[in-house]
Computed example of a mutant assay.
Amino acid sequence: MPASTFFIPSVNMIGAGCLEEAAKSMKEYGLHKALIVTDKVLNEIGVVAGVQKLLEAQHIESCVYDGTRPNPNTRNVADGLALLREHGCDCVISLGGGSPHDCAKGIALVAANGGEIKDYEGVDRSARPQLPMVAINTTAGTASDMTRFCIITDEVRHIKMAIVDKHVTPVLSVNDPQLMTGMPKSLTAATGMDALTHAVEAYVSTAANPITDACALKAITMISASLRAAVADGNNLAVRENMAYAQFLAGMAFNNASLGYVHAMAHQLGGFYDLPHGVCNAVLLPHVQAFNARVAAERLRDVAAAMGVNVVGLSNYEGSQACIQAISKLARDVGIPAGLRDLKVKEEDFDTLATNALKDACGLTNPLKASHEDIVGIFKAAM
């Protein structure tokens, strides 16, 4: 087994009511003026004001950038950076789901390293750590609150840039399920399936190790047991907390074992059509694993078992097929669209999408190497 390096924020708070404790920790870090990166909805419904009130109690000033798009782009990073510099902020707080977290990472990284965010596309391209960043999660899925991954859309090339850099890891992640109860059903489903995708791809990754395996399998078990209930009743705090832990476990898995072709392909759909990331992952996940089953059947059988499938007596191949069926059923049960056709994806774009997917850093650890034709075939199967 090759040597492994394990990345994670130095402090992580999970549980109902932990947001207030997080504000006190920020004061201990010696932070004075924060740029809060969020979206307009969270600002309009008062979540941002609540965070600002907690910061004020710790004598931390703040200003707000709420222009983050659902798929944050280079313009969002540039606009937020301009506001940070204008106000002389010494730290960044991201508030929301993966989009504000990724946008905030881009801002904090460029603030410390100079240039533009596109200069850092790829793996570990920066020279120094970003400004101190605190990530406050309001969804249970992306794990961007605790990873070294930052996904930013390049509007000129219509692709999502994968920035994988140890320097974009937040100093503190906060998962308070009380902030997650307001999530609509569709967002709960999409982010939950995103977390499942993280765990499955990490488990079959060529960079998997005993630590990531343990995190991935536990995440898969918790998501399979809790996601349907979280979608059915968003105010069920116990289920929300289970999903908060599960998404964090999945984050620990993929932050260190990386991902695969599901993400490499989903990034292209998101960049090209501006589609929701979690939904793209959910639609692609069973089809990519059907491709992977040629070499990862035993691992997929383990995933099926973690999802609650009785695999006793099943061969590795049979177990892998049961896994794919279980993933598809969970997606259906929580209301994920049946295929890419429902997302208005066009078959004539597959050639371009496949070319770009094969350039995405997330595909490097997929268990089975794909040709251009293979990727096109998976896109077709997912229609």
Results as ranks from 00 to 15, higher is better:
Asp274Cys: 06
Leu275Ala: 05
Leu275Asp: 00
Leu275Lys: 10
Pro276Leu: 05
Pro276Ala: 04
Pro276Cys: 05
Pro276Tyr: 06
Pro276Phe: 02
His277Lys: 13
His277Ala: 05
His277Val: 04
Val279Ile: 15
Cys280Trp: 11
Ala282Gly: 05
Ala282Glu: 03
Ala282His: 10
Val283His: 05
Val283Arg: 07
Val283Glu: 03
Val283Asn: 05
Leu284Lys: 02
Leu285Tyr: 02
Leu285Glu: 02
Leu285Thr: 02
Pro286Phe: 07
Pro286Gly: 08
His287Asp: 06
Val288Arg: 05
Val288Ile: 01
Val288Thr: 01
Gln289Ser: 15
Gln289Tyr: 12
Ala290Gln: 11
Phe291Arg: 02
Phe291His: 00
Asn292Ser: 04
Asn292Glu: 03
Arg294Asp: 13
Val295Arg: 02
Val295Leu: 02
Val295Met: 03
Val295Glu: 09
Val295Pro: 00
Ala297Tyr: 02
Glu298Trp: 12
Glu298Asn: 14
Arg299Ala: 02
Arg299Leu: 07
Arg299Tyr: 10
Arg299Asn: 02
Leu300Arg: 09
Arg301Leu: 00
Arg301Gly: 05
Asp302Trp: 12
Asp302Tyr: 12
Asp302Thr: 14
Asp302His: 15
Val303Glu: 01
Val303Trp: 07
Val303Lys: 07
Ala304Trp: 11
Ala305Asn: 12
Ala306Arg: 06
Ala306Thr: 04
Ala306Gln: 03
Met307Asn: 04
Met307His: 08
Met307Ile: 00
Gly308Thr: 05
Gly308Gln: 03
Gly308Trp: 07
Val309Leu: 06
Val309Gly: 01
Asn310Tyr: 10
Asn310His: 12
Asn310Arg: 13
Val311Arg: 12
Val312Arg: 11
Leu314Tyr: 15
Leu314Trp: 10
Leu314Cys: 06
Ser315Ala: 08
Ser315Glu: 11
Glu318Asp: 13
Gly319Ile: 00
Gly319Asn: 01
Gly319Pro: 06
Gly319Gln: 04
Ser320Glu: 02
Ser320Ala: 12
Gln321Arg: 15
Ala322Pro: 05
Cys323Gly: 10
Cys323Asp: 11
Gln325Cys: 13
Ala326Gly: 10
Ile327Lys: 04
Ser328Gln: 14
Ser328Thr: 15
Ser328Ala: 14
Lys329Trp: 00
Lys329Gly: 04
Ala331Leu: 13
Ala331Phe: 03
Arg332Pro: 01
Arg332Thr: 12
Gly335Tyr: 01
Gly335Arg: 08
Ile336Pro: 14
Ile336Asn: 07
Pro337Gly: 06
Pro337Tyr: 07
Ala338Ile: 11
Ala338Thr: 10
Gly339Tyr: 01
Gly339Val: 01
Leu340His: 00
Leu340Pro: 01
Arg341Gly: 10
Asp342Ile: 04
Asp342Arg: 10
Asp342Glu: 15
Asp342Val: 07
Leu343Pro: 07
Lys344Ala: 14
Lys344Gln: 12
Lys344His: 14
Val345His: 05
Lys346Ile: 02
Lys346Leu: 13
Lys346His: 10
Lys346Met: 13
Glu347Tyr: 06
Glu347Pro: 08
Glu348Arg: 13
Asp351Tyr: 14
Asp351Glu: 15
Thr352Asp: 13
Thr352Trp: 13
Thr352Arg: 15
Leu353Pro: 04
Leu353Ala: 06
Leu353Gly: 00
Leu353Met: 08
Ala354Arg: 07
Thr355Leu: 14
Thr355Ser: 14
Asn356Cys: 14
Ala357Met: 12
Ala357Cys: 12
Ala357Asp: 09
Ala357Asn: 08
Ala357Lys: 10
Leu358Ser: 00
Lys359Val: 06
Asp360Thr: 03
Ala361Thr: 14
Ala361His: 14
Cys362His: 10
